[in-house]
């Protein structure tokens, strides 16, 4: 079931990318999707780490919109820092605990922190991230904890 779905996804990607709809090209696409799945199966026999997705996609879209607004806001902050004639940086490293259960949720949270300019996830340690901030203030802890709660809300409970 999962294999068939992955093959169809790969084939759909081929159709979107090529844009040429002749029997020969479509045939090449089908053959290469099947070869890719075969190689993937062989690699999976060694790796044994299937990705499990426990994400509510409707909530994910809402979160994505919220993240865009956050990125816009913090972009403006960092832009002001860059173009200011005298730079006032307050660089700091601090720990941000994460509450997500699945690997994917933690990855989304860490990438969201990195995507908003001004904060960067530097290292992942058990129970918390090490975050580097460009213009540190005490409010950062609460803002990042809020983002973490939003990511945790996207996860479904199956994790």
């Amino acid at each position: 079931m999962r294999t068939v779905f992955t093959t169809l996804t790969l084939f759909a990607l081929w159709l979107l990318m090529s844009g040429v709809y002749e029997p020969l090209t479509i045939g090449f696409g089908a053959i290469s999707s099947i070869i890719a799945i075969y190689v993937g199966k062989r690699m999976n026999a060694i790796d044994r780490h299937p990705l499990e997705i426990h994400i509510n996609f409707a909530k994910m879209a809402t979160y994505f919109g919220w993240l865009m607004v956050e990125i816009a806001k913090s972009n403006w902050e960092v832009t002001k820092l860059i173009v200011a004639p005298k730079m006032r940086l307050r660089q700091n490293m601090f720990e941000v605990p994460y509450v997500q259960k699945s690997d994917l949720g933690q990855t989304i949270f860490a990438n969201s922190i990195t995507l908003t300019p001004g904060t960067i996830t530097v290292e992942v340690e058990p129970g918390h991230f090490l975050v580097h901030a460009l213009a540190y203030s005490e409010d950062d802890h609460e803002a990042l904890a809020d983002m973490g709660r939003r990511v945790a809300a996207v996860e479904t409970s199956a994790a």
């Binding site: 990125i71 960092v78 990195t114 300019p117 001004g118 960067i120």
Partner: peptide, 9 residues
Amino acid sequence: HAASVSDSA
């Protein structure tokens, strides 16, 4: 952080 400005916005 400067790199992340041009990478996102």
